[in-house]
Simulated assay, not measured.
Amino acid sequence: MLSREDALDILKVSGCSDKVIAHCITVADLALEIATKLRDKGKDVDLEIVEIGGLLHDLGRARTHGIDHAIMGVDIAKENNIAPAVLEIIKRHIGAGITREEAEAMGLPNDDYIPVTLEQKIVAHADNLVMGTERISLDRRILKMQEKQIDKKSIERVKALAEEIGLC
């Protein structure tokens, strides 16, 4: 597995801005806090995958800031021989995931982007609770989604993910 420094180097070399890198660090740190609490409660969670996945989740923002940044991130990560578990975090981190039907409607490759593993869910949840480098409440995230007129199904998935992580 990559070290934290190696992951940060990949972000820089790939062309991520300092702002994106700072966001990724904040998400990774929050994800690690969440994962550590869950591990302390007896959950089987891989802290290393959570940290590296959190750091690299927005790797695709080196090329685009569109919804397809997750797909671009997976491509860049593959070029850097990143572990499959981290590739899946990058792919599935947007919101609380995107269904196959939603992906098709958005013009993304025909695939399911819903987080499945605990590590994927933790990073997606942590990302939902970070705006830039500021940690925000779930209520604030939902308000932002409503302001952007994000569909109710996506908002409900974000709420359900938060509940699941909170109850794990």
Rank of each mutant, 00 (worst) to 15 (best):
L2A: 00
P115W: 07
Q146D: 04
R63K: 09
Q149W: 07
M106T: 02
V116N: 11
T36F: 13
D44P: 10
S3N: 02
V50P: 01
N128E: 05
E5Q: 06
K78P: 08
P115L: 14
R135T: 13
D151V: 02
E33Y: 15
L55F: 01
D139Y: 09
D44R: 03
V50W: 05
V20E: 10
L138I: 13
T117H: 01
R100S: 00
G95W: 12
Y113P: 00
D75H: 07
M72V: 11
K37V: 10
L30Q: 12
K91M: 03
D151I: 00
L108A: 14
C168H: 08
D112L: 02
L38E: 04
L59D: 09
K12W: 07
D111M: 08
A77W: 10
A31C: 06
N80Q: 02
H69D: 08
D29A: 14
K148V: 00
H57W: 10
I114W: 12
E79I: 13
V123C: 10
E156W: 02
G42I: 15
L129E: 02
G42V: 14
D151S: 15
G66F: 12
G42E: 05
M1E: 09
I67S: 11
R100Y: 00
S14W: 03
V130N: 10
R157M: 03
G73P: 15
D58G: 14
V123L: 08
R63F: 08
R39Y: 13
I82M: 03
K19R: 04
M106L: 14
I94W: 06
C24E: 09
R141M: 03
T117P: 10
D139N: 12
A62F: 06
K78A: 08
L143M: 09
H125A: 04
M106Q: 03
V45Q: 15
I142D: 01
K41S: 07
E163N: 12
A28Q: 08
E33H: 10
D29P: 05
E163Q: 06
P84M: 06
I67C: 07
R61V: 00
D6R: 08
R63V: 12
Q120P: 14
V130T: 13
S154E: 03
K144Q: 15
K152D: 08
L8M: 13
A62I: 15
D111Y: 03
T26N: 12
L161I: 07
R157D: 03
D46R: 00
I90D: 13
K41Q: 10
Q149M: 13
I122Y: 13
I25D: 12
H23R: 00
N80G: 11
A85G: 05
E5R: 14
P109D: 01
I25F: 15
A160E: 10
I142Q: 11
C16M: 04
D112M: 04
K19I: 12
